[in-house]
Design a protein around this nucleic acid. Structure first.
Lengths: 215, 215
DNA sequence: GTCTATAGCAGGATAGAC
DNA sequence: GTCTATCCTGCTATAGAC
């Protein structure tokens, strides 16, 4: 099975809570709904996590962060096939890790939804998201790309470009339904790889500007 | 005053509802909170809108859509200064309309939050968002840019590029706090105009690929 | 149109048996 | 660790006075 149901109550609660929170948001999910989905009793959340908010934070600590590390490892594994990765390889690895690697569509949607919710409407969990994942991710990419670029490069420009790449990957990840609607095309594997090609070529051309001297 | 308090109860409800829904989301806001903020009684929402969900939809119809049209008008006004707008002008007008034109920071944040929430967690309101705003916006931009591009252009590529531009503008709009955190820099007007310059140059270079012949 | 009062129910949390 | 029973608060929605 892709996601075997844990035999331990605490883990079942975490798993179902993550699924439901990512679909509906913190406020829209009741503890009754979670405990029913996890096939246990109403008191289980308070016993294992103290309260609902603490369960939400635990979802980030114990499920979201490890999965983000999974994406990071997929990204690194994808890159390690190349002996001397060029910038295009790095961007492709990153886009691939998010859009078709590392996990199933549903899992990715769940993962991105939780993150987006925290970015648009921060709770305490945003600190985990930024410090454990977003900041290290930026650091990784920046240091990987930097060697291919001029030494006197404006670091701020590079960082803005990385944000641009992330913005595209996130948007093409979460706005799939809208994109399908506007383009009149299913988001099937063929289209997905077309999107990745687009992101890579758009980003590579976009980053050309980094090497140009500008006053 | 920037946002004069309407003397009519219905409009006060719409105004406060929009503010609160955009900050916390539909489920996290209670009708008590809205009616209190609108300085009226608990029954007012049911009287004027029937129920809470209908109030939410009315916010989109009567406040969100008109404001989106305001952004569109700002965009067009900005462009009309140029007699023959080039693609760079169009992208700059679009980014400027979202990031520093048309409305205050708070109003823009409110506007984008409502939209993002619908894109990531659609309710009935997503139909309004896509059909009234996103689709027409794509159409406008596509038809404006097209004359500067080769006739045999792959329309799908152009559409993907427009999505990329939108993704950057949205991301730089909603992830401001995270960007400030990662870059260690305030999102002041100076930085904002730097961001717009970045988006324009990244997008222009990114779209270079459109003219190139590719098999 | 506006308000008070309240019905009727779902929410999170807890106590205490097993 | 697990469960049932229950508390009490807060919710949406409505009835009916003014």
């Amino acid at each position: 099975m892709a996601t075997p149901t844990p035999d331990n109550t605490r883990d079942r609660l975490l798993m179902q809570a993550e699924r439901l929170f990512s679909q509906k948001g913190f406020a829209a999910v009741s503890v009754r709904e979670i405990t029913a989905a996890a096939d246990t009793n109403l008191a289980a959340i308070n016993y294992h996590f103290g309260n609902k908010m603490n369960l939400y934070l635990s979802v980030f600590q114990e499920r979201w962060v490890p999965r983000a590390h999974g994406v990071r490892n997929f990204f690194r594994g994808y890159l390690s096939k190349k002996s001397l990765p060029q910038t295009a390889d790095i961007v492709r690895a990153f886009a691939t890790a998010f859009l078709e690697g590392a996990m199933s569509d549903d899992e990715m949607r769940c993962h991105i939804n939780l993150m987006l919710r925290e970015l648009t409407h921060p709770t305490e969990a945003v600190n985990i998201v930024v410090s454990e994942v977003i900041r290290p991710m930026h650091h990784d990419i920046r240091e990987m790309i930097r060697p291919s670029l001029p030494e006197n490069l404006d670091i701020e420009k590079l960082t803005l470009s990385i944000f641009s790449i992330i913005s595209m990957i996130l948007y093409f990840g979460f706005a799939k339904p809208v994109i399908s609607l506007v383009m009149g095309r299913e988001f099937d594997p063929q289209f997905k790889s077309r999107v990745i090609d687009h992101i890579v070529s758009f980003a590579m051309d976009g980053m050309n500007g980094l090497s140009k001297e500008e006053t």
